[in-house]
Each structure stands twice: as structure tokens, then as C-alpha cells.
Write a protein that binds this DNA or RNA. Structure first.
Lengths: 215, 215
DNA sequence: TCAATACGGAACGGGGCCGTATCGAAAGCG
DNA sequence: CGCTTTCGATACGGCCCCGTTCCGTATTGA
């Protein structure tokens, strides 16, 4: 997560400069509250200011309203993709998923995801920001690895890359979203990657009924 | 979805009986509002009653508060698992996923899932109800099919069944949660099942590097 | 017929939040 | 040093919601 966030308002050069600490405290408070399970709708500007130890006017001086503030909160979550070992497609996939696992373990990011997800229908701009900040970059990283895998022969060329991404990401998502109390155990990344690569069917077996090739 | 919901309050046998229509209208309104993207926190009892065309007292006569009402709303979502063809494990899995796909397409259920997911941290009882009403039964159905598959040799015996379930369910979940605008296209169920069964690796190929067997 | 309970509607006092304004103090610049 | 702007704090009018209570009316069992 980047430590600073854009002031998002014009800053005159005259007079007392704005306190960076105040702005940070606000964003940090929002994240902490979300982490504690507070819904975005339950987050009032008053409460945010109160918890941040900041005057309400200070908040409104930087952000036009709650939506603008939330946008900056999401932008503050920007995190780079991990470095890939490059030894094999399998190892790169494991690295990507392991990164995701550690993020998913962080209550902060899973809480933010949960609350943002709920706002999808009502606040398209918030959702768009989250998608561009968090989701898209991750997908691109996976896609690049998969494309390389196809060209090196490590990945089937006739499989839908989008579907494969969802196959890799889906299990951790399912556990965070549907079984939040469960942890994402160490070694889960490897198990997902190896299972997807290898398939659920016994090796070398061609079952007689009901099986069609992937188109 | 079951059409009726428990009154959740003692009903005296004397006097005018409670109108079933009123109670239904309330639950129906909550579902419709959730469908429109309203967060649970944004749902006020007043608004619910107003939209249901019902006196506020009528709502409070049946439910002690919003949480109790939400619990009954979730209970109203109870839906049976589909009948399984039984021709093969593959076809049974496709049937389960196809059922899920149709549900996911229904804005109602995905909207409810989204909003409920956001309440996880703050309202454990609501989450528990949703999990028992929706999630657990689905998991059991998958588990039964997978166990049968292991015994018939259609599914690897050394794979973690819980992980396999998440592999089957995860992709649709990912699309509904992370890419809500995308539809769940026809044929997705088959593609997921076949890809998971077959694996992402080219058939018959034993890559030289980085691949370890699933433990 | 009558007592009991339901209905939709309206009102109650209490509380929180919104977005703005104003305060005295603080912190920069020239 | 003044001038400007921000700081945290407090207060404002207006709005919505909570949970309860009271209407006048409707619908049941005794």
C-alpha cells in the first residue's frame, strides 16, 4: 500500500500548509473502521473525523464528500504485483497466488473488498476505482504468465485464459468470501496451482462416460 | 425460494388473524431493495414499511428489529439443490454448477450475497444464517458427488475435496463478485467442470521443470 | 353482539448525520 | 513583523430514522 494519498484539492501556496498527518489519519481511520466490520454506509463523515482526531472541516477541506474520500482510500490500497521467479510458469503462478494469499490474510484488504463489493450496484464509480486499482492489474499479471505458458507448451493452448485465471483465483476468493473464518493456509497456493495444472481426473485415465474434450 | 416465511412471533388465536400478505410484502420489498443495490445499512425499517405499503407497527409486530427481519429474509431464500442425472460424476457436477449459474444470473441472489457478505464482520448471526441456508447445503451436495467420484475412480483420490469444491465454485463466484457486469454465459458450467477434470496442462505432457505431484 | 386483535396511518421524543459557519490558536511566507 | 491559511472544536438548521403509542377501521372467535 502506498503510504501517501493525493490531497485531491487545490492547495494554495500562501498561509499555513496543510498537515499531511491529518489527511493520513483520516484515510487510516477509514481503513481501520472498515477492518472492524463497519459498512461504508455506516461510516459517517462525523464519525470518521472523530475517530481520526480531526475537525470535520478539515475533512471537508480535502474531500468534497464521502464518495471522493472513498476513492482516495481505495487508491491508497495500490500495491504492486510480486516479482516472478521466472523459473517456470508453475512457479510464477505460485508466486502470484502466494502474494494473493498473504493479502487475503490481511484483514484490511479482505474487509475492504467485502465492503466495496457491497457498494457495486449503488456506487459504480467506487467500484470502478477498486477494479482498476486492485483487480485489473492482478488479472493482467496472470494473463501474461498464462500466455507465456501457452507459448512454452506448459499450458494447454485450447483453454480459455480468462477461465483459467478464475480457476486460480477463485478458490482463495471463495474461502475469503464464503468461509471468512477459515484461514488461507500455508501451501494453499502450491496446491491450487498443481491441482489446476494436473486436473482432478486420475492421471492417464480416460473415463468411459460423460466426458467430452474441452472445446 | 420458499414462498412463505415464519411469522417469527407468537400469534394469539383470538381476534383478527395476521395478514399473510403483509408479512410477505415486507420480505419481498427487502429483497427488491437489495436487488436495486441498497445496502443493508441503508435499509431503514421506515423505508421498508413504506415501500411495502405497510404500517411500521405491522413490521414491528412480527419482527423485533432489523436483524430478526433480515434473518427471515435469508431463510426465505432457501432453495433445494437440483436433481442429479447420476449418469456420471461429470454430469452431476455440471448439473450442480448449472444450477449455480442460473442462481447467479438472478440479480436477486447475487445482490443478496453481495450485501450479506459485507455484513459478515459486523453481524455474525446474519452471516451464520446465510451460510447455513445457502452455502452449507451446496457444499454438501458437491462433497457427496466428489466422494462418489473417488470411489468410482472418476476423481483422483489424493486431491483435497474441499479444494476441489472451491475450484468448481470459485470461477462463478469470481465472476459474480469481481466482474459483476459480466454474465455467466451458457455453457460455463460444462467448461469449468471439464477444465478442472482435465487440467490446464497439455495432455500427456510431463513438463520437465517446476512441476511436482499433488501430495 | 362483543371483546380481542389486526390493519394502515400519523404522531411522538430522542438521536445522529449532513454540510456550513465561526471561533481562537497555530504555522507558514515575505 | 503582518498576512494568509489551516488547525481542532463547537454550533447551527434541516433531515431522516428509531421504537413506541395512539388513532379509526376491519376482521376474527366466543
Amino acid at each position: 500500500m502506498s503510504t501517501t494519498s493525493p490531497p485531491a484539492s487545490p492547495v494554495p501556496s500562501r498561509g499555513r500548509p496543510r498537515s499531511a498527518a491529518a489527511g493520513t489519519a483520516v484515510i487510516e481511520s477509514v481503513l481501520r473502521l472498515l477492518e472492524e466490520g463497519v459498512t461504508v454506509s455506516e461510516l459517517s463523515m462525523e464519525r470518521i473525523a472523530r475517530e481520526a482526531g480531526v475537525g470535520k472541516a478539515t475533512v471537508y477541506r480535502r474531500w468534497a464528500g464521502k464518495e471522493a474520500l472513498m476513492l482516495d482510500v481505495l487508491r491508497s490500497l495500490d500495491e504492486r504485483s510480486p516479482e516472478l521467479p521466472g523459473t517456470s510458469v508453475r512457479d510464477d503462478l505460485v508466486a502470484l497466488l502466494e502474494f494473493l494469499r498473504r493479502r487475503g490474510l490481511a484483514k484490511r484488504s479482505s474487509a475492504v473488498m467485502r465492503t466495496v463489493v457491497a457498494e457495486v450496484q449503488a456506487r459504480p464509480r467506487v467500484w470502478k476505482e477498486y477494479h482498476e486499482t486492485v483487480v485489473s492489474a492482478r488479472r493482467e499479471a496472470f494473463l501474461a504468465v498464462l500466455r507465456r505458458g501457452v507459448s512454452t507448451g506448459e499450458i494447454r493452448g485450447d483453454a480459455d485464459p480468462e477461465l483459467l485465471i478464475d480457476l486460480f483465483v477463485g478458490p482463495m476468493l471463495a474461502r475469503v468470501v464464503l468461509h471468512e473464518w477459515k484461514e488461507l493456509p500455508e501451501g494453499l497456493a502450491e496446491r491450487i496451482v498443481d491441482t489446476v495444472l494436473q486436473g482432478a481426473r486420475p492421471q492417464g485415465v480416460r473415463p468411459s462416460q460423460g466426458v467430452r474434450p474441452v472445446p
